[in-house]
Simulated assay, not measured.
Amino acid sequence: MSRTIEWRHDGSRLVVPVIVYPPLTGTRLDGVPGNALIDTGSTTTGVTGKIAQKLGLRSTGKRLISTVGGEKHIDRYIFRIGLDGHAADDDAPTFPYVFEEVVGFELLDSFSFDVLLGMDILRQCELLIAQGNRCRLRFGM
C-alpha cells in the first residue's frame, strides 16, 4: 500500500518532515525528527552532525564528495529515513514508512535543514511538482 505526502512549497525549495533512525543494530527504535530538503541533484542522503550525535551514529570513515563549495572529505554514517504519510485510500494515522539503511554523509550544522534527501531515497518514490506550488511525494509502493 503506497503512502503520500502532499504540501505546497515556497517557490524556491522542497522541504518535507522526516524522522532519522539509527541503523538496525539492537533494540533502539526511536528516531530524531527533522526537516529534509529534497535534492534530486544529490546521489546520497545526508544528515547534520547534530542528528548524528543525537542518534549516537559512528562514522564509517571519510569520503571525498563533490559539493557546491568544492570537493571535501566528509564523515559517512549508516542510518535510516522515515516518512510519515497517509495511505492513498485511508486518512487514518499510520506508523512512519522507514526505508532501508543508507550510507549517507554528514551535512554542516549551519544549513537551515537537518537532512538532505538524495536520490538513494528519492528513486524509491514518485515526486510530483505541479502548478500552484503543489507537491506530492508517493512512497512505499
Rank of each mutant, 00 (worst) to 15 (best):
P33H: 11
T67I: 06
A88R: 13
R76P: 02
R58D: 11
G46R: 05
T43G: 09
A87V: 11
K54A: 03
G82V: 07
G104A: 08
P33N: 11
P23E: 06
D91S: 15
L55H: 02
L83M: 15
H86P: 05
G85Q: 04
E100D: 15
K72Y: 02
G69Y: 04
R58Y: 11
F113R: 09
A87N: 06
G70H: 05
V103F: 02
G69F: 06
F111I: 15
S110Y: 12
G61L: 07
G82K: 14
R63C: 02
V115T: 12
L24P: 07
G82W: 08
R76D: 03
A52K: 07
Y21D: 00
T27W: 10
T94R: 12
D91I: 14
T25E: 14
S110L: 14
F111N: 15
G31Q: 02
K62P: 00
P93S: 09
F79K: 08
G34F: 09
D91C: 11
K50W: 05
G61P: 03
K72Q: 09
E106Q: 15
Y21E: 00
D89F: 12
T27G: 14
G56L: 10
D114K: 14
T25Y: 12
G104D: 00
Y21C: 01
I74K: 02
T44M: 03
G41M: 04
F99E: 01
F79D: 01
T44C: 03
P93F: 11
G69N: 11
I78C: 09
R28H: 11
R58C: 13
S112N: 12
D30F: 13
Y21W: 05
L83K: 09
T45P: 01
L64H: 03
I51G: 01
T94H: 07
G70D: 01
